[in-house]
């Protein structure tokens, strides 16, 4: 049992250096500050909003992978469910944007609960395979149900141009305004995730990641713990999906594909699984690489894949995790 989890990145222990402790205490405001500055630091608005959305997806994924130690290969399903349900609710049922988002998150969370229920009892690679298979099922369902989802052409026709917040109309066709509207949701999600990590449950998922047998002997129902973590992770993923739908105003079928699931694994690992802000760093690194490398070769995936493998082999804590460890090392001396 220990053997299957011990290869995972060592994460989120009690910060034993003052630097690290301070950073942990301020991680939510600091993360939000970084996200606020992002559009002004990056070469394009489009990149910033993608880092925001995929970073949030990876934050949700990190809760499951980095903190609970479960390698899901099916998170595209929850991301996609959030996006599709939001789009369908607006475009076909005429729901207001906020209600549509709530519906998307609820649906994605329910789907995660279901997928969790079916997959949580399997272990290791089998767990990954079951989540992958179930997410493929969702993909083909969306492909077939084309009268709802638009099938291969993707879902269109639900553009939200202005949103009303307590009588204040915001034009979200303006990319800057749109970014900050979406960021409010990401910020709320970060605050929520931080709260979960600081909660008693946050200690339980780390215990489960570290040693399932011992956690069970201590009196924790490991399966229920994993299911709750899986569902929470899916809820955050679905929220990222609803933001994606609002942002693009189309939902391509590809969002549900295995590429999306693989991408979120890579982003989380590149940034640093089990570190709070790592997933955003990983999303940025991944998307930057994609942008830059695809300029000079259409085989950018080979390059990104190679970099990914090098990271797994030589920098298992990822960019952010390694930076934090270095900081802690200096602070400790």
């Amino acid at each position: 049992m220990t053997a299957s989890t011990s290869s995972l990145p060592a994460a989120a222990r009690a910060p034993r250096s003052p630097w690290r402790a301070r950073l942990t205490a301020w991680r939510v405001p600091l993360s939000i500050l970084a996200l606020c500055l992002l559009p002004w630091l990056l070469p394009s608005q489009a990149l910033a909003v993608n880092v925001l959305i995929y970073g949030l997806l990876a934050v949700g994924y990190n809760l499951l992978f980095g903190y609970t130690g479960l390698l899901s290969f099916g998170h595209a399903a929850f991301f996609g469910a959030g996006a599709y349900v939001t789009g369908i609710a607006i475009g076909q049922f005429g729901l207001p944007w906020f209600a549509a988002m709530l519906l998307g998150v609820a649906f994605g969370g329910a789907l995660a609960f279901l997928v969790g229920l079916l997959s949580i009892r399997t272990r290791g690679i089998y767990f990954s395979m079951v989540t992958l298979a179930l997410s493929q099922l969702v993909y083909y369902t969306a492909l077939q149900a084309s009268s709802w989802t638009g099938g291969e052409n993707g879902l269109r026709g639900f553009t939200v141009s202005t949103i009303n917040v307590f009588g204040w109309a915001i034009d979200i066709l303006d990319p800057v305004k749109k970014y900050y509207v979406l960021m409010v949701f990401a910020a709320a999600a970060l605050w929520f995730v931080s709260r979960v990590l600081n909660s008693p449950f946050g200690a339980v998922i780390e215990a489960v990641r570290e040693n399932e047998t011992r956690a069970r002997a201590c009196g924790y129902d490991v399966e229920r713990t994993k299911l709750l973590s899986f569902t929470l992770s899916g809820v955050i993923g679905a929220l990222a999906g609803t933001l994606f739908a609002l942002h693009l105003a189309i939902v391509p079928l590809d969002i549900l594909s295995i590429h999306t699931s693989g991408m979120v694994v890579m982003m989380t690992l590149l940034g640093g699984a089990g570190s709070f802000f790592g997933p955003f760093v990983g999303a940025l690194a991944f998307l930057l690489m994609e942008d830059v490398v695809s300029l000079w070769t259409s085989h950018w995936q080979i390059v990104v894949g190679t970099v990914f493998i090098l990271f797994v082999l030589f920098l298992p804590k990822g960019i952010w995790g390694t930076a934090l460890a270095a900081l802690a090392g200096r602070g400790g001396r």
């Binding site: 600081n198 946050g202 924790y220």
Partner: peptide, 8 residues
Amino acid sequence: RYDIWCNR
């Protein structure tokens, strides 16, 4: 065991 809200 399942409290996700309070501060541990």
